[in-house]
């Protein structure tokens, strides 16, 4: 079951979803390892349905302005900036 579930194409597909480029060797190694790991995860099928904690409550605070980083501090670790903005590659 697991052997057919993960092949090289599937690893490439997931890597694309996760935005991680892989070389061919990594794809091959991951396909084998993922088959083993996912087969091991199959044991979760045996877990009974359990009542989850029902007494969870949201912890909220008033939405008030607080001290934060300065623009200079926020930009300090960016590989490239321009006119006080982060510089990224084109979006499409």
């Amino acid at each position: 079951m697991s052997q057919s579930r993960v092949d090289a194409d599937e690893v490439r597909h997931v890597a694309e979803l996760a935005r991680v480029n892989l070389d061919d060797d990594e794809v091959e190694a991951f396909a084998t390892q993922f088959a083993d790991i996912l087969e091991y995860f199959d044991a979760l099928d045996e877990v009974p349905e359990v009542d989850r904690e029902s007494d969870l409550v949201n912890v909220m605070r008033p939405d008030e302005v607080r001290e934060g980083l300065s623009q200079e501090e926020a930009l300090a670790n960016a590989p490239e900036t321009e006119d006080g903005f982060f510089k990224g590659p084109r979006v499409s």
Binding site: A15, E16, A18, R19, V20, N21, L22, E26, A74, N77, A78, P79, E80, F86, K87, G88, P89, R90, V91, S92
Partner: peptide, 29 residues
């Protein structure tokens, strides 16, 4: 994603290509 911090994926391709190449380089196995 290599924009606010971390290794930049460069500015050659589009956003997704740059992101994926930053993460190929920056992350271990």
């Amino acid at each position: 994603d290599g924009v606010r911090y971390g290794k930049s994926g460069g500015y050659e391709g589009n956003w997704n290509e740059s992101f994926a190449s930053a993460r190929e380089e920056g992350f271990g196995a």
